[in-house]
């Protein structure tokens, strides 16, 4: 814990410096930010819509605005949530206005990766588990899927998620994730029962081995 903490302190310090350099007009700081976050933002944007040229448009506009307004931007010691938050607002607005697939987009946002290894997962139970999990996630609301993505895929803290998804406080972010997970669990209860008994079975086998 302590180490993670000191690492993130360092990260924050350098984020603050980089952001200040960018605000003062330092071109290399802009390049750094662009190169570092473009791919991540692109991936995040493509979660919202399958119209990937729209994602590119939004990214271009976001960075143009940041450059034009750089002297007026507020300070931040966390570049990623700052960018994500601005990008997300724009992305959702553009999607609802311009996406070629707007009807499907909100339903099918934050897709689960098609399971390539499905055929090589010999364990019937595990395969079943993954399919159920996928189905369960797809039936969640977009906001629930998004917070699961931000928390488990992006490895962000509640504070960062609060900023991105525009919650009033950390507690609301925490509650939403908890609710999302609860509802996910309900949907895959049967499955959780199945994988839940696995360790019991294994322990049972080991217990018997010991006796024998």
């Amino acid at each position: 814990m302590c180490m993670k903490k000191s690492q993130s302190d360092e990260q924050e310090r350098s984020d603050l410096e980089i952001w200040n350099l960018f605000r003062s007009g330092e071109e290399s700081a802009f390049e750094f930010i662009y190169q570092k976050y473009f791919d991540k933002l692109y991936n995040y944007g493509c979660q919202f819509t399958r119209d990937h040229s729209l994602v590119e448009d939004v990214l271009q506009e976001l960075f143009i605005e940041l450059r034009r307004r750089r002297a007026h931007l507020s300070a931040t010691n966390k570049i990623q949530p700052y960018l994500y938050s601005a990008f997300r607002r724009k992305m959702i607005r553009y999607r609802d206005k311009r996406s070629r697939f707007k009807e499907l987009d909100a339903q099918q946002s934050f897709p689960i990766a098609p399971n390539i290894e499905e055929s090589i997962i010999e364990d019937e139970i595990k395969r079943e588990h993954l399919m159920r999990l996928q189905k369960a996630i797809e039936s969640l609301s977009e906001r629930h899927r998004e917070i699961i993505f931000l928390f488990f895929y992006e490895d962000l803290t509640y504070e960062e998620i609060r900023e991105i998804q525009d919650f009033e406080n950390i507690k609301s972010a925490r509650n939403l994730l908890y609710k999302a997970l609860k509802s996910l669990r309900k949907k895959i209860e049967v499955l959780l029962f199945l994988i839940g008994i696995l360790p019991v079975v294994i322990q049972g086998v080991q217990f018997f081995k010991k006796i024998i």
């Binding site: 473009f38 960075f63 143009i64 450059r67 934050f110 689960i112 993954l130 996630i137």
Partner: peptide, 25 residues
């Protein structure tokens, strides 16, 4: 088990967009 689909940009588009951003600003 939670695996989201991943998307990566075409490096050429990434460069083109950077050029356009600089041109515009």
């Amino acid at each position: 088990s939670l695996k989201f689909k991943e998307f990566s940009p075409d490096p050429k588009s990434k460069q083109r967009i950077l050029d356009q951003i600089k041109q515009e600003t």
